[in-house]
Structure formats: structure tokens, C-alpha cells
């Protein structure tokens, strides 16, 4: 029986030598088939968490599962693809040799690798550079090859740490489309990124880490619901009926007035429109405004009382230094 969760983490702690606390009791769940965004400022512990899942870093304490097996179960890594942040490939290898190398590490046989490499170089738009040395590639090209190596062994779960780092806008859009394509194949994707606007349209679920703690977790809609509001812009003097409507704010913008009400208040909006029209006013704009992921992110930092959370460096229990 397979669980619905691709990743389950309960109470993950990591304290580095020197007392730097990178993770302070993080718990979260990534459901299968989702694109999950892991957000947080520099030093929040995002990469540390991903590295723990990939056994690159040993946790101080963790209780969790990866594809139904305990975190650290090495054979399970064959079902996981990973693209680390700031990765450095052996510069003397060609793209093709590089993929053969990493495919070999995954235990893939040569004929299998050969077929898959051609397919992935096509998918990432790198076919023309298959026989060129990686050392001569731009950052964006290296990122594409990096994605190819993460997908080489046909993984069920893909962990991507800043996948669009150094990629131009066209490339970023292609990567977003690729992620959606991979999701449509039933794969689970965890994306760790600073570029919130990129994650917003593709992530079903996000988690925000701040100084090693989980500040928020949920769907973008859930997390931004309490900050949604309606705005109705009308002509003419300030309406006299405004005081009769509970929770409506009014601000003057030149010759117009902007009426604003928070939450899911569609009936109230209808009432405002009716009242305005009844007075012969022109309704210029009716808009439902949601909180952006970036707003949510900034709000999470402020609410967690971590005014300096956006500065580099993880939380420190004592003397800092990894």
C-alpha cells in the first residue's frame, strides 16, 4: 500500500558544528503528484532540509519518510531526482559523458542510459551541445543539463534547489512548463526557490521556512485567503450610505472613491454596486484582490518576529560558523 505523501517530515532538527541551528523542529508533508514550493530567505534552512532528504547532510534529529521509506534509506534515492543549488559539474566532461556518469551512479546500464540521454537532451534543448564540454557552458545551459541529470533515471520524486538560477526569462518559462509536464506524468516535485513569482502559478502547496522553523504551510489560496479583499471604484462624492455597510473602508482617489472590503464578501459587493447605481453613479472597477505569494512571504517574516530573517545566515544558538 502506498501512502499519499511523497515526503513526510516530523520534527527535523539540524545543528551544525559550532552551534548553528539550521533546522529547529520542522514538520511538513508533500503529497504525491504535487508541485510543492519550499520558500524562505537565505539561511532559513531550505537547502539543509533538502540535503538531509538526499543524505548529503546528517540530521541531528528527524522522523520522516521519503516515498514510504525512512529518510536516509539509500535504495529509495534511486526513485528520487535531485538538482542541488550552485552545482559544479566536472568541467572536462561533455554533456553526454556527464549524463552517462550520473546515470551510471544510479545503476543504469549503458544501453538504457544512451536511450534516455538522447531523450532528455532533446527535452532540455541541449541536443546540439551533447558532445561539448560542460566547462564551456553558460550558467543557464548548465542548469538545463542539471535538470536532465535529475530526470535521467525516471524518478518519481524530484527535488530542485533553485532550478531557474541563472536561466534567462525564456528558459525560466520553459522550465516552468517542464515542471507542469512532469507533474502531469504523476511525478511529485519539490522546488526550493527565491523567485516567488515563478512558483506562484505552478505550486499547489507551499511551505515557508524562517530561521529553521516552519512559518506557514498550505495551498497558496488557503494561506492568502484571509488577506483577500474586494475593491469597488465609483464616481461622485463620498457616498452617505457607506456607514451603513459594516467593514467597508472608503478612500478618495481624485474624483473617484474606492470602497474596500476584506474576505469573501461577494453579497456585500453586490449591495454596494446596487446602491451606487441607484444614485446614478458610474461603477468604474470591481476587483477581487488576493495577497501575492511575495506578500505572504514578507508577512510571514514580519509575523515570525524575525525582522532580520532575510539576511544571510542560519539561526544561531551560540557562536555562529559552519
Amino acid at each position: 500500500m502506498t501512502s499519499d505523501a511523497a515526503i513526510t517530515i516530523r520534527d527535523a532538527h539540524k545543528t551544525f558544528k559550532g552551534g548553528v541551528q539550521a533546522l529547529r523542529g520542522v514538520s511538513m508533508t508533500v503529497n504525491r503528484g504535487q508541485i510543492f514550493g519550499l520558500l524562505g530567505p537565505n539561511g532559513a534552512g531550505k537547502s539543509t532540509l533538502v540535503k538531509i532528504l538526499m543524505t548529503v547532510i546528517h540530521p541531528t534529529l528527524i522522523d520522516g519518510d521519503l516515498l514510504g521509506k525512512p529518510v536516509g534509506h539509500r535504495a529509495t534515492l534511486r526513485r528520487v531526482g535531485y538538482l542541488p543549488e550552485h552545482h559544479r559539474f566536472p568541467v572536462y566532461l561533455t554533456a553526454e559523458q556527464l549524463l552517462h556518469y550520473y546515470g551510471g551512479l544510479e545503476g543504469m546500464r549503458r544501453p538504457e542510459r544512451r536511450a534516455r540521454i538522447g531523450e532528455l537532451l532533446d527535452l532540455t534543448g541541449m541536443s546540439a551541445w551533447a558532445r561539448k564540454k560542460v566547462g564551456g557552458f553558460s550558467k543557464g545551459m548548465q542548469q538545463r543539463v542539471g535538470l536532465a541529470q535529475a530526470l535521467l533515471h525516471d524518478p518519481e520524486l524530484i527535488l530542485l534547489d533553485e532550478p531557474t538560477d541563472g536561466v534567462d526569462p525564456v528558459g525560466r518559462r520553459e522550465i516552468r512548463q517542464l515542471l507542469l509536464h512532469l507533474q502531469s506524468q504523476g511525478r511529485t516535485i519539490l522546488v526550493n526557490s527565491h523567485i516567488l513569482a515563478e512558483l506562484e502559478p505552478i505550486c499547489q502547496q507551499v511551505a515557508i521556512l524562517v530561521k529553521g522553523k516552519l512559518a506557514r504551510e498550505g495551498t497558496v489560496a488557503e494561506l492568502t485567503a484571509d488577506r483577500q479583499r474586494w475593491e469597488v471604484e465609483i464616481d461622485g462624492p463620498e457616498p452617505t450610505w457607506i456607514d451603513t455597510l459594516k467593514g467597508v473602508d472608503c478612500r478618495t482617489e481624485g474624483t473617484h472613491h474606492c470602497l474596500s472590503i476584506g474576505g469573501d464578501a461577494a453579497p456585500m459587493v453586490q449591495q454596494m454596486i446596487d446602491l451606487a447605481r441607484g444614485e446614478g453613479r458610474t461603477v468604474r472597477r470591481v476587483e477581487r484582490i488576493g495577497e501575492s505569494l511575495e506578500d505572504l512571504f514578507i508577512r510571514s517574516l514580519e509575523e515570525s518576529g524575525e525582522a532580520d530573517a532575510a539576511t544571510p545566515g542560519a539561526a544561531s544558538a551560540g557562536k555562529a560558523g559552519k
Binding site: 538526499m54 548529503v56 535531485y82 543549488e85 552545482h87 559544479r88 559539474f89
Partner: peptide, 15 residues
């Protein structure tokens, strides 16, 4: 074992 290189090898299903 330098940063960025070692992760690509250690994250494989090999001890």
C-alpha cells in the same frame, strides 16, 4: 568534496 560537486554524487543510491 567541494560544495556543489559532492552533492551530485552523495545523493545517489550508493554507499
Amino acid at each position: 568534496v567541494s560544495q556543489g560537486a559532492v552533492e551530485l554524487t552523495l545523493s545517489r543510491p550508493i554507499s
